[in-house]
Design a protein around this nucleic acid. Structure first.
Lengths: 177, 177
DNA sequence: CTTACTGTACCGTCTGGACGGTCTTGTCAA
DNA sequence: TTGACAAGACCGTCCAGACGGTACAGTAAG
């Protein structure tokens, strides 16, 4: 299971994200990814037999990392509720300058069904938060506002000033209780 | 300025949106659009000299129609504030079963810069709402939550039940005042 | 010998776009 | 009223290039 120079799989995944971010989601071709990853096209196809598999890998990796980050947040601040942890985590992630997930657009172009696991994940998260949050109205507002924040970040169309974003987060945390 | 059988331009724009919605954003080719619009490829290229121009047309058309719809809402219910009108309009639009704007993914794949006018429009709208809304915190929460709702609709990953969506909207309208 | 690649050559398909031609409509002088 | 002609709206074909994917021979490490 060990690769020769490092973990080729992970390097390829990272390279794909980089290409999508820097050259645009429309320029995410197998050749471009292979070059970026310092791997031959044959090597890429060895790890991901089709482009669809590569996209699937990106989606799974993304979901997995997010889940881990959320779990870590929840664990490290055990007294606060899960919703607040989710708000904080999302706010922090959106703080980073890079949109970092614009490969999603490539995945959708390849096949809209790649959204299905993401939707399922979201559904699961929402269900969990419902179980841990007292007021449904508050949860809805918070959850959707965070969705909006992530959306703005993804589309690189953040309209808020840093102060406004801070105010938003504090308002949400107050609503979350 | 008059077209022969109808307004070809508008038919093409509508056809492009249909193709993106039904066959997926990755299948939005000039041939597919031309076929769908009942127009030859030459005819399409006559109206939109390049694919980029077609995308630009979609963006401008979208923004223009949204602006008109918002203006109509604001006018027809003159006593309520602009933010509430925006909330209501967005909620109604997201009620429609069709995502209807998945051509945006094609536009981004073609060139991420197509997001610039959309971002500018959003910025302008936000600025306007700031001028007409008393509490900035309330505006931020509402605006972002609506952004989230639109995002879920666009990604076809709406996780909310109809009752939850109703509760969300009423909560937002209450926050909006 | 197997695993994990590299590198090259190649194929079939699709795509955007250029081009020349065609049909229709409007205009305007005689 | 009519004929000539220009412009607009559109058709159908063709093509160079890019892309995803295949095939295969080679190689370095364990």
């Amino acid at each position: 299971m060990k690769a020769r120079r490092a973990n080729s799989r992970d390097r390829i995944l990272a390279a794909a994200a980089d290409v999508a971010r820097e050259a645009g989601p429309g320029s995410l071709s197998l050749d471009a990814v292979a070059n970026r990853a310092g791997v031959s096209k044959g090597g890429l196809l060895y790890n991901f037999p089709t482009k669809a598999k590569l996209m699937q890998g990106l989606v799974e990796n993304y979901l997995h990392e997010f889940e881990q980050a959320l779990e870590a947040r929840v664990a490290e601040a055990g007294n606060e509720n899960a919703l607040s942890a989710y708000v904080r985590l999302s706010a922090d992630e959106c703080e980073e300058p890079q949109p970092s997930a614009s490969w999603i657009f490539s995945a959708i172009a390849e096949d809209p069904d790649f959204l299905t696991p993401i939707k399922a994940f979201k559904q699961q998260l929402f269900e969990r938060l419902k179980g841990e949050t007292g007021d449904l109205g508050s949860l809805l507002v918070c959850f959707l506002a965070i969705e909006g924040l992530r959306s703005m970040n993804l589309f690189d169309s953040d309209v808020l000033s840093p102060e406004e974003r801070k105010l938003l987060v504090s308002s949400l945390l107050e609503i979350a209780g």
